[in-house]
Amino acid sequence: MRARNVIFLSTDGDSMGGSQRVIHTLAQGLATRGHRVRLVSINPSRQPHTYFADPLYRHATLYDTPAPEAAPRSLPWRRAKARRTPEEIATARQRLLRLTDRIDRGYLVIASPWAAHWIADLPMPHIAKVGQYHQSYAEAVDSPNLRLIKKYYAHLDKALFLCDDYAASFTNHRLANCGTMLNPVGVFPEKAAALRNPRIVSAGRLVRVKRIDLLIDAFAAAAPAVAEPWELHIIGDGPLRAALEAQAAETGLGDRIVFRGQVENVEAEYLDASIVTLSSDFEGWGLVLAEGAACGLPAVACDASAGVRTLVADGDNGVLAEPGNAGSFAAALERLMSDAELRGRMGARGRERMRAYRLPRVLDRWEALFDEIDR
């Protein structure tokens, strides 16, 4: 396999998040295989996260300051243009062109529809372009993203989605270049979790869509129904932390609902647990489910999307609950909390399902995609 030039372009590649972790994992993996990789963030992060202490890929940021804060429903490029000066925009775009001009031939992996909009009129004829979408089809329909994908991804060399169902749905919008690319699982320990510790783990940003409030209510309903003193460990941080801590205290189980904040070794957290959860109302995929399954954990998840269902097959490697329904989630939790044999069987199945998502296999798929584009 010959060495290639690969640039990952993200709106904000250095914040703490599932899509950011995927991009950094891919960049490091391809660089380990000898490819010349650069990760480019359009905006610097307000709270940058270090994904690799010694990255083998290079990094660049196009704007000097973070993106202006604005109302969440406003369109990203409109608020950026409203607050960035023409000189700032021109300088940032020239920085990207200087990076690509140094490359005779290569691949630009565009991580979001907004990033595709941002580069749409930049002259880069010598660079093959691949668009990724890290959310669900339903999320695209309910936002400006569907229009952006139809407008910009149709002209790329390839448009990649998280599962076959999403790719088929976008194909129905006359995108002829759709394909599926699995997200890699960055953890896959030699030994699976022992599943002896009565601990449930959740990981992610403490924001509204993750519905940690529902998870707390469900745990508070399920915990008294089982004999063992189960704990709920919530990994991550975010603007809702104080409110969620107050909610946990009101359940009377506050000492068994532990807010861990950011952790250095998430793999160790999975290995110390016996159930992994995802309680989101909307979720394109669910990295926490993939990582938990790779560590041998059975899952309880809201049936939020086709992407979630690719990771959790109800009754096989976990239990799916009705989105937004704390009672349904509590019943699913109680089922696994009270049955050690079931946890063991589902955990083993989940780990087996995740073998296809191991980083070497996903990197093979990326290299095969580069070959396909070159033909």
Rank of each mutant, 00 (worst) to 15 (best):
V308C: 00
L363D: 11
L289T: 02
D374I: 13
E352C: 08
P360L: 06
A356Y: 04
R353I: 04
L369P: 05
E352N: 10
R349C: 09
R309A: 01
A332S: 09
A356S: 14
Y357Q: 06
Q262P: 07
P298L: 05
R343V: 10
G292E: 05
N317G: 03
A330P: 04
G261A: 09
R351K: 00
D314E: 06
A321L: 01
E291Q: 15
I275P: 06
L289V: 04
D374C: 13
E267W: 07
G292C: 02
L278T: 01
N325H: 05
V263M: 09
A313R: 14
R349Y: 09
E367M: 03
S280T: 02
R361P: 05
D281L: 15
G296K: 00
L363M: 06
N325W: 10
D339A: 04
E291F: 09
V276Q: 10
D364Y: 01
V300I: 04
R355K: 14
I373F: 02
L297F: 04
G324L: 03
G261P: 03
G350P: 02
A332L: 00
A299S: 09
A368W: 11
L289F: 02
A368Y: 06
S279P: 09
R365P: 06
L359P: 13
Y357L: 06
P323A: 06
A294Y: 00
L287I: 12
N265L: 15
S279T: 10
P298W: 09
E322C: 15
D339F: 01
T310N: 12
V266M: 14
F282K: 15
T310C: 12
A304V: 06
E352T: 14
R343F: 00
L333E: 03
E283I: 13
V312N: 02
F370H: 04
L333I: 06
L369R: 09
E352Q: 15
C302H: 08
D272H: 12
D364S: 08
N265P: 14
E269D: 13
A304Y: 06
E283H: 12
F329D: 07
N325V: 11
G318L: 12
A326Q: 00
G327R: 12
L297V: 03
E283Q: 13
S328T: 00
D303N: 13
L297S: 07
L311G: 09
A331F: 04
S338F: 10
L333S: 07
S279Y: 08
R309H: 01
R353V: 07
D374N: 14
R355D: 11
A330R: 02
S305M: 09
E372C: 03
G315K: 08
D281N: 14
